[in-house]
Design a protein around this nucleic acid. Structure first.
Lengths: 294, 294
DNA sequence: ACCATTATCTGACATTAGTCAGATAAATAG
DNA sequence: CTATTTATCTGACTAATGTCAGATAATGGT
């Protein structure tokens, strides 16, 4: 990382947090304690939440949250009732008065946003918005964390299901799990396999697997990226992580197969240095076979 | 302002303040109360400040600041001594230990900045940095406030001095104030004239004047933008503001004269709808004369 | 020398934020 | 049915943040 790059990020942080940080701070609280204001704002976005979820989302202590809720309840801004299906959890929602309070925060946020745009010329404004969209995308990309995880967790299964559903939709003639070259979570238990999961703020948004073929050869499988985060270069990062795992495991060659309709995948494999090679398995869904020395 | 534009700004705010707002929050405080941490960080950037200035910059109550400083002093991080020229004001500076503490904050900031860049590919990284630079410029532009102010305040005089110095440097043969078409602060007292000043976070960064020629005609003079903020469209905004003042004052025509070396000004005048016209004064420094109906 | 002003400090508060160890009640596993 | 787990609440704290009304001392103007 070049010092100059870091300096640019820090300059940006200073400028932006002066302008936008103010937005998050007590300026927006409209005379209410910041904690209560945050709670109301959050409820406006996700009304009818469970206290349990709120605690996680806002990172609050359970005792603290309990008192905040009590205070808002006393002010007539929220209503709390036990969830019907599990009477331990309590569900919280805004009252009409609470919704009115939320609208104030919402309007204030709008005002702050438009006060940023208002002094600018039309062309400056559109450049600002374009740059904001770009940064938003890239910051999302940077927030995605990739790690080796068990392939049989709920999150992992969710990704694999989404992957199967997608290729079933896209492959000519669909896809059935019991076909050739299968993969089950047991194939991803070291040292015979590994599974990596990508998360964006906790939510699973992509995956990939590495399966041992022999002592020096691994196979990359099940690389999938959620539509929510496509175009952020995540597939490339997942591949990179799998290659890194492979090197650590002592593999010298990586292979993979792919179906002809997955053209974007072919382009990625070539870009990453994979070369087309002869058929190395009898996967009926495969039309191309690649390999790379790592 | 289009709703969609406001929504984009707010999306950006959410994304960025999650990532960067964390940077400002207690995460950076390194176990110290946030107030103390902010103070140390500020002192690292502007060592040897007066308490008075600090109070303004950080927006703190004088009693509160006094206690914060006392606490840092007890920890051996800062030294406070009366200012030699005015023994009421107290000057505060970091000790060696304080500077070491500051360096920790500085490093942590660097780490956070590079953790944002690190997961990105080279091309994503350069796109992110470019977008950040763009936003920084435009947010600075949006933070500039223009208002009618007395022409004889210290800030106003400073701008005018800078203006005179600059045209003296640029005009062929220099510029002397006692030459033709003069302007003195008295010419900017309504209803015979107005003076507008542009400020970026309190600092004067540009100015412009409007002088009455007759009941229906005004003259625009002394439009100047600090080199610090050139390229942000400020001259255009100053002109716009002067035109607005002119309309409110009942003027129907605006005139202005200009020297041939100020080519960027000519382009601006034409862009804003000013048309070249015949000489209307005997200003020896003027080569072109413009006017516009407002 | 006198008075108003300015910069800071101090005491006395109030509020907000946050933590932690139980207590309670509902759900769930065995 | 019992033991354990889970979600929440309560009491008892501490620390941090912030406010306000004087007190104090230096300065500047007259």
């Amino acid at each position: 990382m070049v010092d100059q790059e870091i300096a640019q990020v820090r300059r940006f942080n200073r400028t932006v947090s002066q302008r936008i940080g103010a937005l998050e701070g007590s300026y927006l609280a409209l005379g209410r304690p910041l904690g209560e204001a945050r709670l109301i704002f959050e409820l406006g976005l996700a009304d009818g939440s469970d206290l349990r979820d709120l605690r996680g989302r806002l990172g609050l202590d359970s005792g603290y949250l309990s008192r905040l809720v009590r205070s808002l309840e006393a002010q007539g801004l929220v209503e709390v009732r036990p969830a019907p299906e599990d009477k331990r959890v309590r569900r919280i929602g805004l009252t009409d008065a609470g919704r009115a309070a939320w609208r104030q925060y919402d309007e204030r946020s709008d005002q702050l946003a438009s006060s940023l745009l208002e002094p600018l010329t039309v062309s400056q404004r559109s450049r600002l918005l374009a740059a904001m969209a770009e940064i938003e995308r890239l910051v999302r990309a940077a927030n995605i964390e990739i790690g080796v995880e068990p392939a049989d967790s709920a999150d992992s299964r969710e990704c694999l299901e989404a992957y199967y559903a997608e290729i079933d939709r896209r492959f000519e003639g669909g896809f059935a799990l019991d076909g050739g070259n299968p993969f089950d979570p047991g194939d991803a238990i070291p040292p015979s396999g590994w599974f990596v999961l990508a998360r964006l703020q906790g939510e699973a948004v992509g995956c990939g697997a590495l399966k041992r073929l022999d002592v020096r050869t691994g196979e990359i499988k099940r690389v999938w990226v959620s539509p929510k985060v496509r175009g952020l270069g995540l597939a490339e990062r997942i591949m990179g992580r799998l290659e890194c795992v492979a090197r650590n495991a002592g593999f010298t060659t990586l292979k993979l197969d792919t179906n002809r309709v997955l053209t974007e995948a072919h382009a990625l494999y070539r870009k990453l240095g994979y070369r087309e090679t002869e058929r190395y398995n009898d996967n009926p869904y495969a039309h191309f076979w690649f390999e790379k020395a790592v």
